[in-house]
Computed example of a mutant assay.
Amino acid sequence: MNHGRESILGMTGIRNKRKKRWAWAALAAIIAAAVLFHPTWTPAIKSDNSISVLESIDINGARHTVMIRGENRNNPILLFVHGGPGSSEIPYVRKYQNMLEKQFTIVHYDQRGSGKSYHFFEDYSVLTADQLVDDLLALTEQMKTRLKQDTVILAGHSFGTYIGMKAAAKSPESFSAYIGIGQVGDHHASEQDSFAYVLKEAKAARAEADIRQLERLRPLIESGEEMTPRSLIRKYGGASRQIDDNRDYYEGFLLNPEYNGLDVLRYVRGVAETQAGLLAEESARPLPEIVRELAIPCYFVMGAHDYMTSVKAAQAYFELLEAPKKEFIVFEHSAHYPQFEEKERFAEWMAATFGRTERTKG
Rank of each mutant, 00 (worst) to 15 (best):
S50Y: 05
S190F: 03
L139F: 03
G182L: 15
Y92L: 02
D186K: 05
D134N: 10
H305F: 02
D130A: 13
H3L: 09
L262A: 14
A189V: 04
F195E: 03
A138S: 15
P324I: 02
G113T: 01
F346N: 04
A33C: 07
A284E: 09
L132D: 03
N256V: 00
A204S: 13
I290K: 08
G113M: 04
E201Y: 05
D245K: 07
R63P: 09
L294V: 10
M165N: 04
G13D: 05
L78F: 13
I77T: 14
E332N: 11
R285H: 15
K312R: 10
R234T: 07
V330R: 12
S7A: 14
V133C: 09
A284K: 13
C298L: 10
E208H: 05
Y259K: 06
D210P: 04
F354I: 08
E289K: 08
L220D: 06
V311I: 14
T353Q: 15
K20N: 00
P43I: 06
F80A: 03
E282R: 11
V271S: 10
D134C: 03
L100A: 13
E322L: 10
M67A: 10
F37G: 01
I153D: 08
Q131E: 08
T65I: 05
A335P: 10
I14F: 04
E322Q: 13
G83L: 08
E6I: 04
A25L: 12
E342Y: 12
Q111F: 03
E358I: 01
F328E: 06
A204E: 07
F340L: 12
A314T: 00
Q149M: 08
A155P: 01
S223N: 09
Y267F: 15
A280E: 07
K203M: 04
Y259I: 02
E344A: 15
D130L: 06
A196K: 07
Y92K: 02
A168E: 11
L265C: 04
L100M: 15
D263S: 14
H336W: 09
Y118L: 05
E327H: 13
I51L: 15
Y162F: 14
R69Y: 01
A155H: 12
T228P: 06
A44F: 00
L147D: 02
R94H: 11
L220M: 05
T360A: 12
S174N: 10
P286W: 05
L132K: 09
L321K: 05
T161N: 11
K144S: 04
S310E: 06
G86Y: 03
A304V: 01
G182P: 10
R216L: 11
Q111V: 00
D150K: 14
E327W: 15
E348S: 14
S334M: 11
L137N: 13
E344L: 05
H305I: 01
Q275A: 09
S7C: 06
S310I: 00
F318S: 02
A138G: 11
S174K: 12
Q131A: 07
M67L: 13
K325S: 08
V93N: 08
A33Y: 11
G362L: 14
L278N: 08
K203L: 07
T353R: 15
M227I: 06
L217R: 03
E251N: 06
S334F: 05
V66G: 12
F159S: 09
M11V: 04
V35K: 02
R18I: 07
V126M: 12
R73T: 06
T140A: 13
V35D: 10
D263C: 03
A239R: 10
Q242G: 00
Y307H: 11
I211P: 00
E191P: 04
Q103I: 01
